[in-house]
């Protein structure tokens, strides 16, 4: 390699010399353009497809739960698992920056769970799921819940190999959130409006929220429920059983 500039040319390959001049010159114009035409997330996407193949082979319904922090994802999972654990085998991957708190709550329901702590990371990626499913024993014909890091922006971009994304919005948030964070609502097939028990006390307009979400994604489907009081929970539970039977 050339000692001066680090280019790939052997230092002695080309020399230009005048009598009395010690310094060597060589051609720096060796730039080559390599066409790549590759999706930036192609590595993530190929691992996601690998996960998807694994889920298909074992007939596992993988659902990626996404929302802002505090929308009630973990409470909804606790309730869902408690109600369905005698009907469907379920396991959970919990994503958070820090702590085992959510995993401990899920473990109390009896479902197998693994906590992925992303450190400073703001989303789960396909490789984290790949590694997590190596640590979990997943039954055939089961449901795998992936509770993503609470963040309405970044997780929209990362395919994990899930069957679908389920976005959760709670009535303590603004009903215009689908317009403010359109990517997540574009990528999700299901929207759960949670904490409906608080509707008498907050300014959240359910119809306005649904209209906003439909503008972003006209085919999105809704469930309105309160994970806490269990009002509206049955429709959701029936839907999961129906989806799991379809897989």
């Amino acid at each position: 390699m050339c000692d001066t500039c680090g280019c790939s040319q052997p230092a002695d390959a080309v020399t230009f010399k005048k009598p009395g001049e010690e310094h060597h010159h060589h051609d720096h114009n060796q730039d080559r353009i390599i066409n790549i035409e590759r999706d930036v997330l192609s590595k993530n996407n190929s691992v996601a497809e690998r996960n998807r193949g694994y889920f298909d082979a074992k007939n596992i319904l993988a659902l990626n739960l996404v929302s802002s922090p505090g929308s009630g994802k973990t409470t909804l999972l606790e309730k869902t698992i408690s109600k369905l654990k005698n009907t469907i085998a379920m396991a959970v991957i919990e994503g958070d920056q820090q702590t085992l708190r959510d995993a401990e709550r899920i473990q109390a329901t009896g479902a197998p769970v693994i906590q992925v702590n992303t450190g400073t990371g703001c989303h789960l990626d396909a490789d984290m799921i790949h590694r997590a499913i190596h640590e979990l024993t997943l039954d055939e014909n089961s449901v795998l819940w992936i509770e993503n890091v609470g963040n309405l922006v970044c997780p929209a971009l990362f395919d994990l190999g899930e069957a679908m994304k389920v976005v959760i919005i709670s009535t303590t948030e603004g009903d215009d959130k689908p317009l403010k964070y359109p990517n997540m609502f574009m990528e999700s097939q299901i929207c759960i409006i949670n904490k409906t028990d608080l509707l008498p006390y907050v300014d959240f307009n359910v119809e306005a929220c649904k209209n906003a979400a439909k503008q972003v994604n006209p085919s999105i489907e809704f469930f309105e429920l309160s994970a806490k009081t269990e009002d509206g929970l049955n429709d959701w539970l029936e839907w999961i059983q129906h989806q799991a039977a379809k897989e």
């Binding site: 280019c7 790939s8 720096h28 060796q30 730039d31 080559r32 353009i33 390599i34 066409n35 790549i36 035409e37 590759r38 999706d39 930036v40 997330l41 971009l157 317009l179 359109p182 574009m186 439909k214 503008q215 972003v216 006209p218």
Partner: peptide, 30 residues
């Protein structure tokens, strides 16, 4: 901006034909 209604009929059933790209086209090496 997303979402935007169709300027012709006002509908929201819009499919994105371009604008979601995130791709490395090429590199120039030496």
């Amino acid at each position: 901006q997303w979402p935007s209604p169709c300027p012709q009929c006002g509908g929201y059933f819009i499919t994105v034909s371009s604008g979601k790209e995130l791709k490395v086209k090429s590199i120039t090496i030496n």
